[in-house]
Nucleic acid binder design. Structure first.
Length: 379
DNA sequence: CCTGCCGGGTT
DNA sequence: AACCCGGCAGG
């Protein structure tokens, strides 16, 4: 209850106003330019309306009414049902169109551009959050707007697999994160900047697990539009939204955090994150998981593929009353230790329980929840 | 105490 | 198979 704060709107204390503002802004710029339009035609600085981070829902649904095809479709529910001729593009996710693919992106791009440009009035965003999927492979910073897109990207580019006729979804390791960016904050930050292409690559994003709201956020709810550079050709892309995390919120989730390599603990303090040494972070293997609970900087969380479970409140009152102190059991069939090390040495890594705590039990990996060997923080 | 998780039961 | 949990080892 105390920590399970849903996307903390104000973020107020997330970052200290030190001197790294520009860095931040930079990232913001990138993000925005990305999300608004891949083409540099439309400088986002145009006029990004700013709405009070609070109450956007109402104000939006009100003012956002028609004007555009309004297919921001975040939540079909709050759509004012603008007379959209074409069905809401709730397609995305499953369509599996890879935005960054040479030719594919056209469509989506078109769309976004479409309603972006056609916008007569500075429409207000209905929801300032945007979900994007970011590839976590070593030097790849690809960001796509759909999970299927990123998966495909990984499959083809990193796993060297031909996506065409084969998609063995089940067991693949898709290392990517789902990030949610608050556009409001971004806009604010760069309202005074011009959208220039990012030249520096900030440190990779970090995604310590962190609580967040329990919203399930189904994959196909990702707003589609916006994308990023072309294929993964450049081994070192211009890191689109590298150091995400605009002061407000950045919501990251990694799919498949399971069997991640040994948890790497990246020194992460909001400052360090944007400190000059851009790429200094030990960003080595795709899946990176944090051991410790990042302090205040928490807007990120990791999720396992099979863990999409209901992340509901679940205030579980599991307070096990371990009163059964029956340790002194008289085991009938005793000794016979299976050749040495009977029980596992007991890894030293902190497991879900320790990391998230009982109150956030729904964030544990399934194994932990079932009192099985932790799969997320394996030793 | 607490945490991790085995072993085994239940759905 | 997914889920749950008693109970124990280790700290």
């Amino acid at each position: 209850m105390s920590q399970a704060n849903p996307i903390n709107h104000s973020s107020a204390s997330l970052r200290n106003p030190s001197g790294h503002a520009d860095k931040e802004v930079m990232a913001a710029t990138v993000l925005t330019s990305l999300s608004t339009s891949p083409l540099v035609l439309n400088p986002p600085s145009a006029a990004v309306p700013e709405l009070p981070s609070r109450g956007w829902k109402e104000s939006l649904s009100a003012s956002y009414s028609s004007s555009t095809s309004g297919n921001w479709s975040w939540d079909a529910s709050d759509q004012s049902v603008p007379s959209t001729p074409s069905p809401p593009l709730s397609n995305d996710a499953n369509k599996g169109f890879l935005l960054s693919a040479p030719g594919d992106d056209a469509s989506e791009e078109h769309e976004s551009a479409h309603f972006l440009f056609e916008d007569p009035i500075p429409r207000k965003r209905k929801n300032s959050m945007k979900v994007m999927f970011k590839c976590l492979w070593k030097n790849c910073e690809k960001v796509l707007s759909t999970s299927s897109g990123i998966q495909r990207h990984i499959r083809t580019v990193h796993l060297g697999r031909n996506s065409d006729s084969d998609y063995s979804d089940g067991e693949e390791d898709f290392y990517y994160t789902e990030i949610e960016v608050n556009m409001d904050t971004l806009s604010e930050g760069l309202s005074s900047l011009t959208p220039t292409s990012p030249t520096t690559a900030g440190p990779p994003p970090l995604f310590p697990q962190l609580s967040s709201e329990p919203h399930p956020l189904p994959r196909d709810s990702a707003p589609h539009h916006h994308q990023q550079q072309q294929h993964a050709a450049p081994a070192f892309p211009t890191t689109p939204l590298s150091q995400s995390a605009p002061s407000a919120l950045c919501h990251i989730r990694t799919d498949h955090a399971y069997q991640a390599t040994a948890p790497v603990n990246i020194p992460m303090s909001s400052e360090k994150l944007e400190s000059e040494n851009g790429i200094s972070v030990s960003w080595q293997s795709p899946p990176v998981i944090f051991k410790g609970l990042p302090g205040p900087m928490s807007h990120i969380r990791t999720v396992n593929i099979g863990e999409k479970r209901q992340l509901a409140a679940h205030t579980h009152t599991h307070t096990h009353t371990h009163s059964t102190l029956g340790r002194a059991h008289v085991s009938p069939a005793p000794p016979l230790k299976p050749a040495s090390g009977s029980r596992k040495p007991r890894g030293e890594a902190k497991k879900c329980r320790k990391v998230y705590g009982m109150e956030k039990r729904d964030m544990w990996c399934t194994a932990c929840r079932w009192k099985k060997a932790c799969q997320r923080f394996v030793d």
